[in-house]
Amino acid sequence: MASVEAQASGSGQREPNHGMRIFIISLVLGVIFDALFWFLLSPHMPPGTMTSAAASEQFDINVLAAIAIPVMIFIFVYFGYALTVWRRRPGDDTDGPALHGNARVQTTWITVTSAIVLFLAGFGTYELIVPQGAGAGEGPAPIWTPPGAKLTVAQQIAPWTPGQVLVIQVIGQQWKFSYRYPQFGGFETSALVIPDHTWVQFDVTSIDVIHSFWAYQLGVKADANPGVDNVAFAKTDQLGKITVRCDELCGLWHGAMFDYGKVVPVSEFQSWASSSRVELASITKLLPPYATTYNPTVIPLFRLGPVVKKLGLFGAGGGYYPPQDPQQP
């Protein structure tokens, strides 16, 4: 483009090769900033490397940033150069060159942007499938699963031994999360405790409105829909504290819907789980039997269940319809 233009402008002195200048400036700056980013910043990018999912997300963000930095630098350099060099000189009221386009520049631009985009789509697909869904909720029938994923209730309530996939049912309600461990008798607790070096399967559901389970350090995010089992996977690699926040507006106290969990060594987890199982046994038997979704209106109180339900003596039902409604289907 530059050489074509140099002829067209027809000015007396030799026109500098603007395109080459811009290219070299942005190349140098791009390499410098990419190196700075990759060696200084990228190990600290969110969400860390506590799990396989988190690590793959961090890698995605780093790769995207490493591509974005030179692209942005090129455009900023171009604009900076253009606004400096090609500003109107005082007293110059003439028009610029009548340049309507340049087939080579246009073709190059379209080819390069298309190539970047297609690469990113391929990269993103690979990074979605290989790390088992990259920590995102995959719905009730996950298709990218780790070996030994437990997708039926029968598999989920079989006792856990170290090395197996640990199933944790995450139950959202206004405005807290509770966690149910079906492999340990189905006790329900507000503490999120996870063993190290273990594949964890989160079965996220809700009993009222839509929440979203965001375990930041685990790199897991899955919407909690009432009546839906939303499954997400992550393999823990490090010990540490987890921050859990609700990520979908769920009413007045959405902003206060957070708690903390931890990743502990396997032996510590086992002793915690078995002691919790014993401690909570009296409450566990009052809970609805474990199912992939959580329906609090199922009450296992001998034959009193239907009576209690008839009287409306249960908590949030997840539905809008009170029992006395004439149109109850």
């Binding site: 253009a82 090609w86 500003r87 028009d95």
Partner: peptide
């Protein structure tokens, strides 16, 4: 492209 060699 419009900025190229313009009189901004």
């Amino acid at each position: 492209g419009t900025l190229w060699k313009a009189k901004i």
